[in-house]
Design a binder for these strands. Sequence first.
DNA 1: TTATAGTTTCAGTACCCTCTGAAAGGTGGA
DNA 2: TCCACCTTTCAGAGGGTACTGAAACTATAA
Lengths: 190, 190
Amino acid sequence: MVMALEKPTAVDPDQQLQLAQDLFIRRFGEMGQTWGINRTMAEIHAFLYITADPKCTDDVMERLNISRGNASMSLRALCDWGIIRRMHRRGERREYFESLADVWEMFSIIAAERKRRELDPVLEALQTCRKMLDEETIGKAAKDHPISATRARLDDMQQFMDVTHKIFQQFIGNSKAGLSRIVRVLLKAL
Amino acid sequence: MVMALEKPTAVDPDQQLQLAQDLFIRRFGEMGQTWGINRTMAEIHAFLYITADPKCTDDVMERLNISRGNASMSLRALCDWGIIRRMHRRGERREYFESLADVWEMFSIIAAERKRRELDPVLEALQTCRKMLDEETIGKAAKDHPISATRARLDDMQQFMDVTHKIFQQFIGNSKAGLSRIVRVLLKAL
DNA sequence: TTATAGTTTCAGTACCCTCTGAAAGGTGGA
DNA sequence: TCCACCTTTCAGAGGGTACTGAAACTATAA
């Protein structure tokens, strides 16, 4: 083609877009994996997010090369999480899905869910453990008895987890505006 | 026993200690699992932390009911992470292991490692993607072209990840004293 | 009511990660 | 040098999760 000669190294924009999106999708999929979210779910979400355009089940199947069953289950799970939404198009029968647009909101949702599932049970266990070793429960223990050592360790851990808990709370309860204010304060504090 | 009659519901302190420790170990193991760390490693670490007393390989095998091979590999991995340490006892041949005592330091180490492994590659990918879609690379795109949408999404995500990155940096670069100051500021800020 | 388009479910399969246990490898003492 | 004790390695087994594909289901149009 004559037009292409103008810029010998010119790239095809559509192909380039595809490549960039694929890289994004792949990396986010890998990240999800080590975060306890399965790779496919993370990839589907990344795909919906990065294209910024509603997609139907077949679009997802084709782009990510997965089965209908897998696509259906993963899309439902993402809807349950609340980070993608179902969408109807007038006059069309099939359903479309789109990602939330606000990154802060998405991560808020994820953080809230993970806190509930992972942090809360640990906090509860810490309190139970501490109560099991209370003086009220088992009486005083000598300073060098193993019980004293375990009590101290529990207390240290609890202090740490309480702070973590509070940070999560802040993060979860705030929208982008509120959060970036917190972050500004945080970064200036040092 | 006559003495036991004084307090009918009295518990055996040693047994109680064991139970409390077991609960702690179990919950932390579960937490590790959903955080991409394997259950056994998390349990071993929890065991060493909560007892606050150096243990040898056989102690670990016995308490957690795992094989020698597994214990050996997991202990090495924990040493590599730097959250437990090898220890010699004068006149003894076998090696002992103990957990770091400072919770803040431990989580700093873990955060640093996870950032390196998981956050950094994503940040790099984001930059690569953005560069692939630069005007310099593929020329201007119409406002309603899919490329514009993807550019915008990439930029939003990058902004978010940059902030996350900075928070990690703060966390990693500071000991307990520095951190709790930051946390104090953070919690007051709202 | 039937035909059609699309979605969900789930039994079976494939894959991956973890764990075991035995053999090989070190290391200090006799 | 050999022995005793302890640690590390690794091939193979086991267990668990994710994926497929086909059948069942649902909803809409004719």
